[in-house]
Amino acid sequence: MNSETIEKDSKKKLLAAGQAAEAAREAGHDEDSEESHESSAEPMTSASHGEKAILHRPSSASMVWTLAQREIQANLNSAITYIVIAASLVVVGLYFFFYKGGFWQVDRASMARMFDSIPFALCFLTVPLFTMRSLADEKRVGTIELLITMPVKDSEVILGKFIGSLAMVALQIALLAAYPIVMFSRAPFWHLGELDWSPFWVGMLGLLLLSMAGTAIGVMWSSFTESQILSYFATMLTLVALYAIGSVSIVEFLQGWPGDAISFVSLQSRFEPFARGLIDSRAVIYFLSLTTLGLVVAFRSLESRKWS
């Protein structure tokens, strides 16, 4: 599936960026010498003392997966998850079918409407709600202390949180996508035309990229605070601002290069080609960079506990 390769890409990018950042600002020994270990051989040994110590820890990938799994389980155990999912389904469903005449007005069998509404729902509700707990709650309850004193790298903690939250967002997207899938699988019954599936999958890819960027930003905010509420609002405002800033009126109002610049950073304008079934490579890079940025900042912020 597409999403997997993309996740891997983003991980590589994250690590690359992390190392670049290190190389740039490394002075004296910094805790993240562990980062550079990461690129070297997997059965890690501490070379510095000449004596070999076998590390009782799994490979990075399975560590990240263990942490992500825990995160997903915690989410599935929480009532909030189901409330969020149900609420999003209802809101998007209503919008999809009824708002401004709804789905039925559009003559062609098209999912464009769906890609109209879901991104905003993601920015406003889903992503902030699924990321707010991730680090903030661990810090508030103090579980972070037990987690971090296990042989886990800070980067693995961040990636685990990221993937865990992203999985929840992806679950939500999948459930939302169930509307059209169910409808079109019974196309004759609903008197709908045949749907062109490839733009649909491109749109889904776009949603996933958007969610990755959003989730990274959410994890980042969550790493700054101990309060879930604060984390929610900070993430929500950031994402909604990044989204709404690209609305046509603002871009037109500014015109010229400011308008271009704004539409460049706007989630909405970056997502727009995907909604039309086009894979815009610049947008892919943009979303991935945003993801990387968010995760690197979160990593730094998690590390900073040491010096406080």
């Binding site: 805790e31 501490s46 510095s48 003392h49 004596e51 110590a53 590390l55 009782h56 296990m150 042989p151």
Partner: peptide
């Protein structure tokens, strides 16, 4: 024998 700063993973795993 492992520095808590330089070999944090080794330290934490023991």
């Amino acid at each position: 024998g492992q520095d808590v700063f330089d070999d944090t993973l080794a330290v934490r795993s023991s």
